[in-house]
Nucleic acid binder design. Structure first.
Lengths: 231, 231
DNA sequence: ACATTTGATATGTACTACATAAATACAATA
DNA sequence: TATTGTATTTATGTAGTACATATCAAATGT
């Protein structure tokens, strides 16, 4: 039996450190006690004693929760529970360089999916003012091209504006975080492909067209990217 | 001048601890050195000395990176860089109870957006076998209802299967993580609303209908949720 | 050549010590 | 009385030491 087979069957034993255990323990503790944001937590010493570990270990666990924004600490005042920024932790990890190819591809598709699903909420919330701003962005795009950098920035501005028009702050931030990865995957292609439907076309649809037309237009706009997908 | 005005003008000073700084420093270090997964890192002592902080602080920072899956540590062997599970950290924070209402609403909309955007990739990858499995799930739903719990589980199974059919592992996991929040927001409503298009209808469209028909069907299916959205 | 022992090394954990910030109480002053 | 200054206490932030443990590598023995 080869070593690889063994690894596959057994796998490495995930040896958890005390910090891992304490982190989990604390998380469950917070949940069980149903603390609300702003509530005070026991002191580090109390936690250490209660858990039977050194204050060191407790601090490592707390450091993690602090990074996630689940708790805030103030000197003397102690620690208080707070509402985490759910995308904050995401942001830290989202670097094309450290993510494996398969996941990169998945995220690429995730963004395409979002883009295609936006129409309904977009049509619910779009305002005249927003459309005008979007139009300004679309028109600032010189058809003869001002170089690669400008084109990419314009692309980002346009699609970013669309997300912003949904009025969904989380969605906007999320897509902003996905951008580097999207850009990275695209950059792997040699020849930049451009869809038949331009930004200006999309703006015009937004002005006069229906949701379905917009969705169809977006699909055409993103066609080169969809064509890239593997079956 | 009122206290609130003062807070608005000045705001609290965000005091960063050494662990915060070191975490950032290490992250940039890893990036700059362009380490690849598997590469060995300097020891804790070396890092502490180089940064001019105690090993304690370094460990708190490393503990965070370890939680994110960016590094793995083995005794004596030292630390190695690894590819983080991008959704892992997300999972930790995604609890309806600790997320503020506005973000909950955003995530609710995010899932609706995904659902509406799935059609293209779904039609690219769907197989006959998958559709049969989906049909089995849809048919297991007794129209007279077997109680709330069953209905919810069936709902989850059906939509989960659709995500799985896209062949996008990240997307599937992502939606699984969004489920509790989706469920939570729905549970706030008194009367459960059901769309005109049923699961079985959707399966039939998948069998014979076009992408656009599917999207329209999904919209009808999710209509009650869309109606809930605020303009 | 192979098995065993030994030593060195990096992480994991514990403990101590002290600086620092902040809340509280209390005294002092206008 | 209200504000300001001072002292005390307390919890976090940081440093440092010590040691257990696992593991790699080299030395040793058969």
């Amino acid at each position: 039996m080869s070593k690889n087979d063994l690894i596959k069957d057994l796998g490495p034993i995930a040896q958890r450190t005390m910090a891992d255990v304490v982190e989990k323990e604390l998380r469950e503790y917070l949940k069980k006690k149903s603390f609300k944001p702003g509530d005070a937590l026991p002191s580090e010493n109390e936690l250490a004693e209660a858990l039977g570990v050194s204050r060191n270990v407790v601090r490592e666990a707390l450091s993690r929760l602090r990074m996630l924004g689940m708790i805030e600490t103030k000197k003397r005042r102690g620690m208080i529970l707070s509402t985490p920024d759910i995308l904050g932790s995401f942001e830290r990890v989202l670097d094309p360089l450290i993510i494996d190819d398969s996941t990169l591809q998945d995220i690429f598709e995730l963004r395409l999916t979002l883009e295609m699903g936006l129409a309904d909420i977009l049509y619910l919330r779009k305002t005249k003012k927003d459309i005008e701003e979007l139009e300004a962005i679309a028109k600032s795009q010189d058809p003869r091209g001002k170089g690669q950098a400008f084109r990419i920035n314009n692309e980002i501005a346009f699609h970013g504006k669309i997300y912003q028009m949904t009025g969904n702050e989380t969605l906007l931030r999320f897509q902003n975080m996905l951008l580097p990865i999207f850009g990275y995957v695209i950059s792997l292609e040699k020849v930049p492909q451009i869809g038949k439907v331009s930004h200006i076309d999309l703006v015009n649809i937004l002005k006069n067209g229906s949701k379905e037309e917009f969705r169809q237009g977006m699909l055409e706009h993103l066609k080169p990217h969809f064509n890239r997908l593997k079956k």
